[in-house]
Design a protein around this nucleic acid. Sequence first.
RNA 1: GUGGCCGUAGCUCAGUUGGUUAGAGCGCCAGGUUGUGACCCUGGAGGCCGGGGGUUCAAGUCCCCUCGGCCACCCCA
Length: 435
Amino acid sequence: MNTDFQSIKGTFDILPDTATTDGASPAPTTTWRYVERVVHRVMARFNAEEIRTPVLEPTPLIARGIGAYTDIVSKEMFAFERGDTQYVLRPEVTAPVMRAYLQHHLDQRGGVQKLYYIGPCFRAERPQKGRYRQFHQFGAEIMGTADPRADAECIAMMQAIYDAVGLTGLTLRLNSVGNPPSRARFVEALQTYLQPYLEELSETSRQRLETNPLRILDTKNEHEQEILQEAPVLLDFLDQESRAHYDTVKGLLDDLDVAYTEDPTLVRGLDYYTHTAFELESDDLGAQSALGGGGRYDLLAQELGSKQPVPSIGFASGIERLLLAMDAQGVAVPAKPTADVFLAALGDEAERWVFRWAQQLRTEGLAVALDLRGRSLKAQMKEANRQDAPYTLIIGGNELNTGRASVKEMATGEQEEVAFDALVDYLKGRLPAVA
RNA sequence: GUGGCCGUAGCUCAGUUGGUUAGAGCGCCAGGUUGUGACCCUGGAGGCCGGGGGUUCAAGUCCCCUCGGCCACCCCA
Protein backbone atom coordinates (compact mmCIF):
# COMPACT_ATOMS: atom_id res chain seq x y z
CA MET A 1 0.00 0.00 0.00
CA ASN A 2 1.35 3.36 -0.92
CA THR A 3 1.39 6.61 0.93
CA ASP A 4 2.66 10.09 0.32
CA PHE A 5 4.50 10.00 3.60
CA GLN A 6 7.43 8.25 5.17
CA SER A 7 9.36 8.49 8.40
CA ILE A 8 11.87 11.31 8.44
CA LYS A 9 15.40 10.58 7.28
CA GLY A 10 17.45 9.02 10.00
CA THR A 11 14.43 8.00 12.06
CA PHE A 12 12.67 4.66 12.07
CA ASP A 13 9.60 2.78 13.21
CA ILE A 14 9.99 0.00 15.72
CA LEU A 15 7.73 -2.79 14.46
CA PRO A 16 6.04 -5.75 16.16
CA ASP A 17 7.97 -8.36 14.21
CA THR A 18 11.05 -8.67 12.07
CA ALA A 19 9.43 -7.62 8.80
CA THR A 20 12.65 -5.68 8.40
CA THR A 21 12.54 -3.14 5.64
CA ASP A 22 14.96 -0.40 4.72
CA GLY A 23 14.68 2.27 7.31
CA ALA A 24 13.13 0.12 10.01
CA SER A 25 14.39 -0.53 13.52
CA PRO A 26 17.34 -2.89 13.92
CA ALA A 27 15.08 -5.01 16.10
CA PRO A 28 11.37 -5.57 16.79
CA THR A 29 9.52 -4.12 19.77
CA THR A 30 9.87 -7.28 21.84
CA THR A 31 13.65 -6.97 21.68
CA TRP A 32 13.54 -3.30 22.61
CA ARG A 33 11.38 -4.11 25.59
CA TYR A 34 13.71 -6.87 26.61
CA VAL A 35 16.69 -4.52 26.58
CA GLU A 36 14.75 -1.90 28.50
CA ARG A 37 13.77 -4.53 31.03
CA VAL A 38 17.39 -5.51 31.52
CA VAL A 39 18.36 -1.87 32.01
CA HIS A 40 15.68 -1.37 34.68
CA ARG A 41 16.67 -4.57 36.44
CA VAL A 42 20.39 -3.88 36.50
CA MET A 43 19.87 -0.27 37.56
CA ALA A 44 17.73 -1.51 40.42
CA ARG A 45 20.60 -3.73 41.56
CA PHE A 46 22.74 -0.62 41.83
CA ASN A 47 20.00 1.22 43.66
CA ALA A 48 19.62 3.80 40.92
CA GLU A 49 16.34 5.67 40.53
CA GLU A 50 14.73 6.51 37.22
CA ILE A 51 14.39 10.09 36.07
CA ARG A 52 12.47 11.28 33.00
CA THR A 53 13.13 14.70 31.60
CA PRO A 54 11.53 16.44 28.59
CA VAL A 55 12.76 15.77 25.11
CA LEU A 56 12.54 19.51 24.53
CA GLU A 57 15.03 21.69 26.38
CA PRO A 58 16.16 25.31 26.18
CA THR A 59 18.93 25.58 23.61
CA PRO A 60 21.25 27.59 25.89
CA LEU A 61 21.25 24.76 28.44
CA ILE A 62 22.75 22.43 25.86
CA ALA A 63 25.04 25.02 24.35
CA ARG A 64 26.49 25.97 27.70
CA GLY A 65 26.46 22.50 29.17
CA ILE A 66 28.11 20.66 26.34
CA GLY A 67 30.24 23.49 25.00
CA ALA A 68 29.76 25.81 22.07
CA TYR A 69 32.73 24.42 20.14
CA THR A 70 31.66 20.81 20.24
CA ASP A 71 30.38 19.27 17.02
CA ILE A 72 27.07 18.58 18.66
CA VAL A 73 26.34 22.18 19.44
CA SER A 74 27.99 23.76 16.44
CA LYS A 75 26.32 21.68 13.74
CA GLU A 76 24.21 18.78 14.94
CA MET A 77 21.30 20.22 16.87
CA PHE A 78 17.66 20.16 15.89
CA ALA A 79 16.89 23.61 17.24
CA PHE A 80 14.20 26.14 16.55
CA GLU A 81 12.75 29.32 17.86
CA ARG A 82 9.20 30.08 18.84
CA GLY A 83 8.28 33.43 20.28
CA ASP A 84 11.32 34.49 22.25
CA THR A 85 12.26 30.99 23.39
CA GLN A 86 14.92 28.82 21.80
CA TYR A 87 14.13 25.12 21.85
CA VAL A 88 16.27 22.12 21.08
CA LEU A 89 15.53 18.43 20.81
CA ARG A 90 18.00 17.14 23.34
CA PRO A 91 21.16 15.68 21.80
CA GLU A 92 22.11 13.99 25.09
CA VAL A 93 20.70 13.87 28.55
CA THR A 94 23.42 14.62 31.08
CA ALA A 95 22.90 18.39 30.91
CA PRO A 96 19.11 17.99 31.21
CA VAL A 97 19.51 15.72 34.24
CA MET A 98 21.83 18.22 35.87
CA ARG A 99 19.30 20.94 35.06
CA ALA A 100 16.60 18.90 36.79
CA TYR A 101 18.88 18.20 39.74
CA LEU A 102 19.51 21.89 40.26
CA GLN A 103 15.98 23.04 39.44
CA HIS A 104 14.39 20.66 41.94
CA HIS A 105 17.15 20.85 44.55
CA LEU A 106 17.60 17.12 44.50
CA ASP A 107 20.59 17.42 46.81
CA GLN A 108 18.05 18.29 49.52
CA ARG A 109 16.75 14.73 49.35
CA GLY A 110 20.01 13.95 51.08
CA GLY A 111 22.85 11.71 50.09
CA VAL A 112 24.21 10.97 46.67
CA GLN A 113 21.70 11.03 43.82
CA LYS A 114 22.00 8.00 41.61
CA LEU A 115 19.73 8.61 38.64
CA TYR A 116 19.21 6.69 35.42
CA TYR A 117 17.22 7.29 32.26
CA ILE A 118 16.10 5.70 29.01
CA GLY A 119 14.85 7.74 26.10
CA PRO A 120 15.29 9.30 22.68
CA CYS A 121 17.93 11.85 21.69
CA PHE A 122 18.38 13.75 18.45
CA ARG A 123 21.36 14.70 16.38
CA ALA A 124 21.31 16.06 12.82
CA GLU A 125 24.10 13.93 11.42
CA ARG A 126 24.16 11.98 8.19
CA PRO A 127 22.76 8.55 9.05
CA GLN A 128 24.80 5.39 8.69
CA LYS A 129 25.18 2.06 10.40
CA GLY A 130 24.62 2.57 14.13
CA ARG A 131 23.98 6.27 13.70
CA TYR A 132 20.52 7.77 13.50
CA ARG A 133 19.00 11.21 13.81
CA GLN A 134 16.62 10.02 16.46
CA PHE A 135 18.40 7.45 18.56
CA HIS A 136 17.90 6.07 22.03
CA GLN A 137 20.10 6.19 25.03
CA PHE A 138 20.13 4.79 28.47
CA GLY A 139 22.54 6.05 31.05
CA ALA A 140 23.13 6.90 34.67
CA GLU A 141 24.45 9.82 36.65
CA ILE A 142 25.92 9.61 40.13
CA MET A 143 25.64 13.14 41.43
CA GLY A 144 26.97 14.87 44.48
CA THR A 145 30.23 13.09 45.17
CA ALA A 146 33.79 13.31 43.91
CA ASP A 147 34.68 9.98 45.49
CA PRO A 148 36.51 7.69 43.05
CA ARG A 149 34.22 4.88 44.16
CA ALA A 150 31.44 6.65 42.28
CA ASP A 151 33.60 6.53 39.14
CA ALA A 152 34.24 2.83 39.53
CA GLU A 153 30.63 2.05 40.34
CA CYS A 154 29.41 4.04 37.35
CA ILE A 155 31.65 2.11 35.00
CA ALA A 156 30.67 -1.16 36.64
CA MET A 157 27.01 -0.26 36.18
CA MET A 158 27.46 0.24 32.47
CA GLN A 159 29.46 -2.94 32.14
CA ALA A 160 26.86 -4.90 34.10
CA ILE A 161 24.19 -4.15 31.53
CA TYR A 162 26.23 -5.49 28.65
CA ASP A 163 27.08 -8.53 30.74
CA ALA A 164 23.42 -9.05 31.52
CA VAL A 165 22.38 -9.17 27.87
CA GLY A 166 25.25 -11.52 27.18
CA LEU A 167 27.59 -9.46 25.03
CA THR A 168 31.24 -10.46 25.08
CA GLY A 169 34.54 -9.29 23.68
CA LEU A 170 33.96 -5.62 24.39
CA THR A 171 36.80 -3.22 25.12
CA LEU A 172 36.60 -0.68 27.90
CA ARG A 173 39.00 2.18 27.29
CA LEU A 174 39.98 4.33 30.24
CA ASN A 175 41.79 7.59 30.67
CA SER A 176 41.96 10.66 32.86
CA VAL A 177 41.75 14.16 31.49
CA GLY A 178 42.69 15.53 34.89
CA ASN A 179 41.41 18.51 36.79
CA PRO A 180 41.31 21.98 35.19
CA PRO A 181 44.83 23.11 36.22
CA SER A 182 46.39 19.87 35.01
CA ARG A 183 44.49 20.08 31.80
CA ALA A 184 45.43 23.71 31.25
CA ARG A 185 49.12 22.91 31.59
CA PHE A 186 48.82 20.02 29.20
CA VAL A 187 46.88 22.02 26.62
CA GLU A 188 49.57 24.62 26.66
CA ALA A 189 52.28 22.01 26.16
CA LEU A 190 50.32 20.42 23.36
CA GLN A 191 49.84 23.71 21.59
CA THR A 192 53.52 24.45 21.86
CA TYR A 193 54.43 21.02 20.55
CA LEU A 194 52.08 21.24 17.58
CA GLN A 195 53.06 24.78 16.60
CA PRO A 196 55.90 23.66 14.25
CA TYR A 197 53.58 21.19 12.53
CA LEU A 198 50.90 23.73 11.88
CA GLU A 199 51.21 23.43 8.10
CA GLU A 200 50.78 19.66 8.22
CA LEU A 201 47.61 19.66 10.25
CA SER A 202 44.17 19.39 8.74
CA GLU A 203 42.00 22.46 8.71
CA THR A 204 39.79 21.16 11.49
CA SER A 205 42.74 20.29 13.67
CA ARG A 206 44.22 23.75 13.15
CA GLN A 207 40.94 25.20 14.24
CA ARG A 208 40.77 22.92 17.25
CA LEU A 209 44.23 23.95 18.32
CA GLU A 210 42.53 27.19 19.35
CA THR A 211 39.07 26.06 20.32
CA ASN A 212 39.34 22.50 21.61
CA PRO A 213 42.96 21.23 21.55
CA LEU A 214 42.27 17.99 23.40
CA ARG A 215 40.12 16.76 20.58
CA ILE A 216 43.12 16.67 18.25
CA LEU A 217 44.37 13.69 20.23
CA ASP A 218 41.79 11.25 18.91
CA THR A 219 42.23 12.17 15.27
CA LYS A 220 42.01 9.31 12.80
CA ASN A 221 44.19 11.09 10.29
CA GLU A 222 47.26 8.88 9.93
CA HIS A 223 49.75 11.65 9.41
CA GLU A 224 48.43 13.51 12.40
CA GLN A 225 48.69 10.34 14.44
CA GLU A 226 52.34 10.10 13.47
CA ILE A 227 52.94 13.65 14.53
CA LEU A 228 51.26 12.91 17.84
CA GLN A 229 53.56 9.95 18.50
CA GLU A 230 56.06 12.25 20.12
CA ALA A 231 53.52 14.66 21.57
CA PRO A 232 53.32 15.30 25.31
CA VAL A 233 51.17 12.76 27.12
CA LEU A 234 48.20 13.93 29.12
CA LEU A 235 48.87 11.57 31.99
CA ASP A 236 52.31 13.11 32.59
CA PHE A 237 50.67 16.43 33.32
CA LEU A 238 48.28 15.22 35.97
CA ASP A 239 48.91 16.87 39.29
CA GLN A 240 49.02 14.86 42.45
CA GLU A 241 45.30 15.05 43.11
CA SER A 242 44.37 14.03 39.56
CA ARG A 243 46.93 11.26 39.54
CA ALA A 244 45.71 9.87 42.86
CA HIS A 245 42.11 9.94 41.70
CA TYR A 246 42.96 8.07 38.54
CA ASP A 247 45.04 5.46 40.32
CA THR A 248 42.32 4.88 42.87
CA VAL A 249 39.69 4.37 40.17
CA LYS A 250 41.89 1.82 38.46
CA GLY A 251 42.45 -0.02 41.71
CA LEU A 252 38.73 -0.11 42.43
CA LEU A 253 37.97 -1.43 38.96
CA ASP A 254 40.48 -4.18 39.60
CA ASP A 255 38.68 -4.96 42.85
CA LEU A 256 35.42 -5.24 40.92
CA ASP A 257 36.99 -7.40 38.22
CA VAL A 258 36.08 -4.88 35.58
CA ALA A 259 38.63 -5.16 32.78
CA TYR A 260 39.89 -2.01 31.09
CA THR A 261 42.54 -0.81 28.70
CA GLU A 262 44.32 2.43 29.43
CA ASP A 263 44.27 4.77 26.48
CA PRO A 264 46.05 8.08 26.98
CA THR A 265 44.55 9.46 23.78
CA LEU A 266 40.95 8.91 24.85
CA VAL A 267 39.28 12.29 25.00
CA ARG A 268 35.57 12.61 25.27
CA GLY A 269 33.91 15.03 22.93
CA LEU A 270 32.03 17.14 25.41
CA ASP A 271 33.52 20.03 27.32
CA TYR A 272 32.29 19.22 30.77
CA TYR A 273 34.51 16.24 31.48
CA THR A 274 37.18 16.22 34.18
CA HIS A 275 39.27 13.36 35.55
CA THR A 276 37.87 10.00 34.52
CA ALA A 277 36.91 9.38 30.89
CA PHE A 278 35.89 6.02 29.47
CA GLU A 279 34.36 4.42 26.44
CA LEU A 280 33.07 0.93 25.70
CA GLU A 281 33.78 -0.39 22.23
CA SER A 282 32.82 -3.33 20.09
CA ASP A 283 34.29 -4.43 16.77
CA ASP A 284 30.91 -5.75 15.66
CA LEU A 285 29.61 -2.31 14.79
CA GLY A 286 31.52 -0.99 11.78
CA ALA A 287 32.61 2.60 11.92
CA GLN A 288 30.42 3.56 14.86
CA SER A 289 32.24 1.35 17.30
CA ALA A 290 31.35 3.07 20.57
CA LEU A 291 28.59 1.33 22.48
CA GLY A 292 28.70 3.86 25.25
CA GLY A 293 30.91 6.15 27.19
CA GLY A 294 31.07 8.72 29.89
CA GLY A 295 33.16 10.44 32.45
CA ARG A 296 33.34 12.74 35.40
CA TYR A 297 31.95 16.24 35.08
CA ASP A 298 32.65 18.18 38.23
CA LEU A 299 32.34 21.55 36.49
CA LEU A 300 28.97 21.22 34.82
CA ALA A 301 26.76 22.41 37.68
CA GLN A 302 28.59 25.70 38.02
CA GLU A 303 28.66 26.09 34.28
CA LEU A 304 24.87 25.99 34.49
CA GLY A 305 24.80 28.68 37.16
CA SER A 306 24.91 26.72 40.40
CA LYS A 307 26.77 28.43 43.24
CA GLN A 308 27.66 25.08 44.70
CA PRO A 309 29.72 22.55 42.76
CA VAL A 310 27.98 19.22 42.16
CA PRO A 311 30.77 16.75 41.44
CA SER A 312 29.29 13.94 39.35
CA ILE A 313 30.04 11.10 37.00
CA GLY A 314 27.86 9.41 34.43
CA PHE A 315 27.68 7.24 31.36
CA ALA A 316 25.47 7.11 28.31
CA SER A 317 24.87 4.14 26.00
CA GLY A 318 23.22 3.79 22.63
CA ILE A 319 20.40 1.26 22.47
CA GLU A 320 20.59 0.85 18.68
CA ARG A 321 24.25 -0.04 18.93
CA LEU A 322 23.59 -2.48 21.73
CA LEU A 323 20.93 -4.09 19.53
CA LEU A 324 23.30 -4.22 16.56
CA ALA A 325 25.98 -5.87 18.67
CA MET A 326 23.47 -8.38 20.06
CA ASP A 327 22.42 -9.25 16.53
CA ALA A 328 26.03 -9.60 15.36
CA GLN A 329 26.85 -11.88 18.27
CA GLY A 330 23.64 -13.87 17.90
CA VAL A 331 22.63 -13.20 21.47
CA ALA A 332 19.43 -14.98 22.45
CA VAL A 333 16.36 -12.82 22.89
CA PRO A 334 13.11 -13.95 24.53
CA ALA A 335 10.45 -14.91 21.99
CA LYS A 336 7.53 -12.61 21.46
CA PRO A 337 4.59 -13.34 23.72
CA THR A 338 1.65 -15.15 22.15
CA ALA A 339 -2.00 -15.39 23.02
CA ASP A 340 -2.81 -18.16 25.50
CA VAL A 341 -5.86 -19.26 23.61
CA PHE A 342 -7.54 -18.65 20.27
CA LEU A 343 -11.33 -18.73 20.12
CA ALA A 344 -12.71 -20.08 16.86
CA ALA A 345 -16.42 -19.82 16.13
CA LEU A 346 -18.71 -21.51 13.64
CA GLY A 347 -21.99 -19.78 13.01
CA ASP A 348 -23.62 -16.55 14.14
CA GLU A 349 -24.65 -17.75 17.55
CA ALA A 350 -21.21 -19.19 18.24
CA GLU A 351 -19.62 -15.94 17.17
CA ARG A 352 -21.60 -14.11 19.82
CA TRP A 353 -20.68 -16.71 22.43
CA VAL A 354 -17.03 -16.42 21.52
CA PHE A 355 -17.09 -12.67 21.61
CA ARG A 356 -18.55 -12.69 25.13
CA TRP A 357 -16.22 -15.41 26.35
CA ALA A 358 -13.16 -13.69 25.00
CA GLN A 359 -13.95 -10.84 27.34
CA GLN A 360 -14.60 -13.20 30.25
CA LEU A 361 -11.36 -15.09 29.79
CA ARG A 362 -9.51 -11.81 29.57
CA THR A 363 -10.85 -10.67 32.91
CA GLU A 364 -9.48 -13.97 34.23
CA GLY A 365 -6.06 -12.82 33.03
CA LEU A 366 -5.78 -14.93 29.90
CA ALA A 367 -4.46 -13.48 26.64
CA VAL A 368 -7.13 -14.19 24.05
CA ALA A 369 -7.06 -13.96 20.25
CA LEU A 370 -10.04 -14.32 17.93
CA ASP A 371 -11.19 -13.66 14.40
CA LEU A 372 -12.60 -10.24 13.63
CA ARG A 373 -13.48 -10.83 10.01
CA GLY A 374 -16.17 -13.50 10.09
CA ARG A 375 -13.98 -16.00 8.32
CA SER A 376 -14.37 -19.74 7.77
CA LEU A 377 -13.42 -22.16 10.52
CA LYS A 378 -10.49 -23.32 8.42
CA ALA A 379 -9.26 -19.75 8.07
CA GLN A 380 -9.65 -19.27 11.81
CA MET A 381 -7.60 -22.39 12.49
CA LYS A 382 -4.89 -21.10 10.18
CA GLU A 383 -4.92 -17.85 12.07
CA ALA A 384 -4.72 -19.71 15.40
CA ASN A 385 -1.72 -21.58 14.07
CA ARG A 386 0.00 -18.44 12.93
CA GLN A 387 -0.68 -16.76 16.26
CA ASP A 388 1.10 -19.65 17.92
CA ALA A 389 -1.49 -19.87 20.69
CA PRO A 390 -1.02 -23.12 22.59
CA TYR A 391 -4.80 -23.78 22.79
CA THR A 392 -7.72 -23.19 20.47
CA LEU A 393 -11.35 -23.29 21.55
CA ILE A 394 -13.69 -24.45 18.81
CA ILE A 395 -17.28 -23.42 19.31
CA GLY A 396 -20.11 -24.43 16.98
CA GLY A 397 -23.69 -25.68 17.21
CA ASN A 398 -22.64 -28.94 18.90
CA GLU A 399 -20.75 -27.17 21.64
CA LEU A 400 -23.55 -24.74 22.28
CA ASN A 401 -26.01 -27.62 22.58
CA THR A 402 -23.94 -29.72 24.94
CA GLY A 403 -22.44 -26.81 26.89
CA ARG A 404 -19.00 -28.26 26.33
CA ALA A 405 -16.24 -26.51 24.37
CA SER A 406 -13.88 -28.38 22.07
CA VAL A 407 -10.41 -27.50 23.27
CA LYS A 408 -7.56 -28.29 20.91
CA GLU A 409 -3.97 -28.43 22.01
CA MET A 410 -2.20 -27.09 18.96
CA ALA A 411 1.20 -28.68 19.48
CA THR A 412 -0.14 -32.24 19.67
CA GLY A 413 -3.35 -31.83 17.71
CA GLU A 414 -5.25 -33.52 20.51
CA GLN A 415 -8.68 -32.27 21.31
CA GLU A 416 -11.06 -32.73 24.21
CA GLU A 417 -14.39 -31.44 25.41
CA VAL A 418 -14.56 -29.24 28.45
CA ALA A 419 -17.70 -27.95 30.13
CA PHE A 420 -18.06 -24.20 29.76
CA ASP A 421 -17.95 -23.56 33.48
CA ALA A 422 -14.77 -25.58 33.82
CA LEU A 423 -12.92 -23.78 31.01
CA VAL A 424 -11.11 -21.19 33.08
CA ASP A 425 -9.68 -23.75 35.48
CA TYR A 426 -8.84 -26.11 32.64
CA LEU A 427 -6.85 -23.50 30.75
CA LYS A 428 -5.20 -21.94 33.77
CA GLY A 429 -4.15 -25.36 34.97
CA ARG A 430 -2.36 -26.05 31.71
CA LEU A 431 -0.83 -22.68 30.90
CA PRO A 432 2.54 -21.65 32.38
CA ALA A 433 1.76 -18.70 34.64
CA VAL A 434 -1.04 -16.32 33.95
CA ALA A 435 -0.27 -12.78 34.98
C1' G B 1 27.95 18.53 5.60
C1' U B 2 31.31 15.48 1.70
C1' G B 3 31.98 10.89 -1.10
C1' G B 4 30.88 5.73 -3.06
C1' C B 5 27.11 2.00 -3.98
C1' C B 6 21.96 1.02 -4.42
C1' G B 7 16.24 1.83 -5.24
C1' U B 8 11.29 -3.71 -9.80
C1' A B 9 4.89 -6.94 -5.57
C1' G B 10 4.69 -7.25 1.92
C1' C B 11 9.91 -9.95 1.75
C1' U B 12 14.20 -12.03 -1.30
C1' C B 13 15.19 -11.27 -6.19
C1' A B 14 14.80 -12.24 -12.12
C1' G B 15 13.88 -8.93 -16.22
C1' U B 16 17.93 -10.77 -22.66
C1' U B 17 21.63 -5.42 -27.56
C1' G B 18 15.86 -0.04 -25.13
C1' G B 19 10.58 -3.49 -28.30
C1' U B 20 3.56 -6.28 -27.02
C1' U B 21 -0.93 -6.55 -21.31
C1' A B 22 6.43 -6.55 -15.92
C1' G B 23 7.86 -12.28 -13.76
C1' A B 24 9.43 -16.19 -9.86
C1' G B 25 9.83 -18.06 -4.85
C1' C B 26 8.10 -17.01 -0.01
C1' G B 27 4.10 -14.39 2.42
C1' C B 28 -1.19 -12.81 2.10
C1' C B 29 -6.51 -14.14 0.54
C1' A B 30 -9.89 -17.99 -1.26
C1' G B 31 -11.03 -22.95 -2.69
C1' G B 32 -9.87 -28.42 -2.73
C1' U B 33 -12.18 -30.79 2.86
C1' U B 34 -20.54 -26.89 3.41
C1' G B 35 -16.87 -28.40 11.78
C1' U B 36 -10.45 -28.23 12.30
C1' G B 37 -4.09 -25.39 11.69
C1' A B 38 1.05 -27.08 10.63
C1' C B 39 2.04 -30.92 4.66
C1' C B 40 0.13 -30.99 -0.43
C1' C B 41 -2.72 -29.13 -4.85
C1' U B 42 -5.48 -25.11 -7.54
C1' G B 43 -6.80 -20.17 -8.15
C1' G B 44 -6.66 -14.93 -6.78
C1' A B 45 -5.33 -10.15 -4.99
C1' G B 46 -1.19 -7.16 -4.77
C1' G B 47 3.64 -3.07 -8.89
C1' C B 48 2.44 5.17 -11.29
C1' C B 49 9.67 -0.57 -11.91
C1' G B 50 11.14 5.57 -5.47
C1' G B 51 9.60 10.63 -7.75
C1' G B 52 10.33 14.46 -11.71
C1' G B 53 12.38 15.83 -16.29
C1' G B 54 14.98 14.49 -20.88
C1' U B 55 16.71 11.37 -25.29
C1' U B 56 13.79 7.98 -28.57
C1' C B 57 8.79 5.76 -33.02
C1' A B 58 9.37 3.11 -28.22
C1' A B 59 12.40 3.64 -21.43
C1' G B 60 12.03 -0.90 -15.73
C1' U B 61 16.35 -0.75 -19.15
C1' C B 62 20.09 5.29 -21.56
C1' C B 63 21.07 10.71 -19.50
C1' C B 64 20.11 14.68 -15.77
C1' C B 65 17.83 16.25 -11.25
C1' U B 66 15.52 14.92 -6.75
C1' C B 67 13.98 11.87 -2.59
C1' G B 68 15.21 7.66 0.20
C1' G B 69 18.36 3.51 1.84
C1' C B 70 23.17 1.40 2.72
C1' C B 71 28.41 2.17 3.62
C1' A B 72 32.51 5.35 4.54
C1' C B 73 34.64 10.32 5.91
C1' C B 74 33.59 13.48 9.93
C1' C B 75 31.76 12.74 14.77
C1' C B 76 29.83 10.10 18.37
C1' A B 77 25.41 6.78 21.23
